[in-house]
């Protein structure tokens, strides 16, 4: 079902946590709210759930205005970071609780619990208590409890962050498959950009309570709307260097990049991804830098250089070798570089 947030605000006393948030989420879409902790993404999710009141603006689910509707009448399902399993109930009773509250007949409830449990491979554990389960199993119970009824929207608040790295990537794949099978609109909150990139149909990046950009993962990665998004997305993050445009060439102290086209402008930032640059001999390259350190990760080597005194990261071949403090040149793909206005931080279209 479609979810719409229109000019939603939330303040706690004088402190404004969410500022003028407008989002349109299509039926069946998986939207990821991404941002560092304290950026307002969880508050936004909790407002959709009805756990926080809305200071201003409206929230619609389907065609219904739910801004002032109690959570129980919104027909949403939520998975909490802590899973919020009821410790005094068995797995079966945990999963069946939402149906029991709706007065579902016992036989129907039992069937629904079994089928939900089957979807997440929990059939064997229905009689256990949450304390007897591993972290991954608890996570599955939480998912099953959300799926046991057909909600209008799934709300997920960092559901994978309490799992270890290996389990997390396995659950990620499973979650993505479940969501596309069920086709239920999902809002997913996370601070982990890998999760956001891999799961989302669209990613909404938030910072300081303000929505910075909403776009499909690829667009977020390739065409960040502003410096905040550019710096947040990507590991290692996008390199940002200061300079100016003159006659189609971006100039900085230790080099120049021919970008072509754009009008002359004094204060700009040039951004490029570590994989869009290659290391070259110092004298013939666009940019001249010094190697600061090299880290071999297995399939590649991450080289940190100093350019104009600023650190710049370049992905190199895994066999790359370079002594610290030795001079090195950097060539980059002008088509993939992006420009930002130094005053507003916004990307400049070329």
């Amino acid at each position: 079902m479609r979810v719409r947030l229109a000019n939603v605000r939330k303040s706690f006393g004088r402190h404004e946590v969410v500022r003028n948030l407008s989002l349109d989420i299509a039926d069946g879409e998986l939207l990821v709210l991404l941002g560092a902790s304290g950026c307002g993404k969880t508050t936004a999710l909790r407002m959709v759930a009805g756990l926080e009141t809305v200071t201003a603006g409206t929230i619609e689910i389907g065609d219904r205005d739910v801004t002032h509707v109690l959570p129980k009448y919104r027909n949403v399902a939520m998975v909490f970071q802590s899973y919020a399993l009821y410790p005094h109930m068995t797995v079966a009773r945990n999963i069946g609780y939402p149906l029991k509250l709706r007065g579902t007949p016992a036989a129907e409830l039992d069937a629904a619990v079994r089928s939900a449990a089957a979807k997440v491979h929990l059939e064997e554990l229905l009689d256990r208590y949450p304390r007897q389960l591993s972290g991954g199993q608890r996570q599955r119970v939480a998912l099953a409890r959300a799926m046991v009824r057909t909600p209008s929207v799934f709300l997920m608040d960092e559901p994978l962050s309490n799992l270890d790295a290996k389990l997390r990537s396995a659950m990620r794949a499973e979650l993505k498959r479940l969501q596309s099978d069920l086709g239920v609109t999902t809002i997913y909150v996370t601070h982990d950009q890998i999760e956001a990139m891999t799961l989302a149909h669209r990613v909404a990046v938030m910072d300081g309570g303000v929505l910075q950009q909403v776009a499909p993962p690829k667009e977020i990665y390739d065409e960040p709307a502003n410096l905040l998004v550019a710096r947040f997305i990507g590991a290692p993050a996008m390199n940002i260097v200061a300079g100016a445009m003159e006659h189609g060439v971006f100039r900085l102290r230790d080099g120049a990049v021919p970008l072509g086209g754009a009008a002359p402008r004094a204060s700009l930032y040039l951004g490029f991804r570590p994989e869009d640059a290659i290391l070259a001999p110092a004298d013939a390259a666009m940019l001249r830098a010094r190697i600061y350190s090299t880290e071999m990760t297995g399939n590649e080597t991450i080289v940190t250089c100093h350019l104009d005194g600023e650190p710049v990261v370049v992905r190199a071949d895994k066999d790359f070798e370079g002594a610290p403090d030795s001079a090195v040149g950097i060539d980059l793909d002008p088509a993939k570089a992006v420009l930002f206005d130094r005053d507003t931080g916004n990307r400049i279209r070329r």
Partner: peptide, 13 residues
């Protein structure tokens, strides 16, 4: 934990 109560609230309690 307040999560438990919020979860129940959303589940319709």
């Amino acid at each position: 934990p307040v999560d438990l109560e919020e979860s129940a609230q959303i589940d319709g309690a």
